[in-house]
Amino acid sequence: MSMQSASTRVALATALLLAIGAGSSGAADKYKVPRTSWGDPVIQGFYNNNTDVPFERARELGDKAFYTEQEYAASKQPRPQPPPQRAGGSGGVPNAADVHYDTGEFGLDPDQSEMVKSLATSIITQPANGRLPPLTREAQQRSDAARAAGQARQYDSAQDRPLAERCVLWPHEGPPLRPVGYNSHVQITQSPGYVVFETEMIHDARIIPITDQRPDFGGLTRWQGNSWGHWQGDTLVIETTGINEASTPRGSNVGMGPDAKVVEKITRTGPKTILYEFSVTDPGLWDVSWGGQFPMELTEGPMFEYACHEGNYGIANTLRGAREEEKTKARQGQ
């Protein structure tokens, strides 16, 4: 993706902050959103949502939702870092794992990509402390049991590896969508009756019908749920239910249940900005709903193809390593 000038970014960031502070409806009042030839607000384009705003707020910040400019600048000051942890090996001897996870070398460090500045202290804004609500006691027990069972067989087969590692679904794709750290681009395309969200990683396109009432999805689930949308003024409201239970939300090792619902709101707040808001409800996992928001900034395309599965040597190598380790232990009589 091409880069935009620093001055442009500062101006955009200012506009975004005003938009976030005012909320989506207030922002729309200040900016006349262009229309498609069929009358819908234009939101399509290539967007960047790379951010340094953490998903959950630091506990010590309490209910403080925004930094001041001075506080933000201070938060960006380099802090004393602990000695680097080697990913593999022992005795401080580097090995291949260290190379693989040297994200800076391959341009995968978020700081190496264009950043959409925000003074927000967390992406989560609901509850007010900016943190995921705890799972219900019953859900926590199920989650703990699922984690223990998963860890026991984590190297048994490809199907026992995490969904993202298998290139089935990455958790940032949502819904709700959230910034991922690198390859943080989204392409939105509109046609009469549809809006399509394609996340660069891992090239998944959510096709969202735009309609006055919820379509009949036949009682089926999908990996990213069944979504439909409608316009409320300049805001596109998307409701999603029927999310595959194998797709686990952040903070849980079990999936959402049949009563789960994700609501997303997308509002164009300026010539090159949109605000993405979301809320998540699942009485089977949480006693309260939670949600948040983040800005996305228009950028230039194209968005490159992220072919995950086709080049996935990691799965085979991980399993191959596990089998070799078992053979070694067997030879050693362990």
């Binding site: 067989r153 190297y155 048994d156 087969s157 490809a158 199907q159 026992d160 298998r166 290139c167 089935v168 689930t221 595959n244 194998a246 599965h309 799965i315 085979a316 399993l319 191959r320 596990a322 089998r323 078992e326």
Partner: peptide, 24 residues
């Protein structure tokens, strides 16, 4: 992907474990 994994990676499955059933 879930439908191709056993064909592609089944030979690397831990001996004695059953084919996992996941995905739809």
């Amino acid at each position: 992907v879930p439908f191709a994994e056993e064909m592609m990676y089944g030979e690397l499955r831990k001996p004695g474990t059953a084919g996992a059933k996941q995905g739809e």
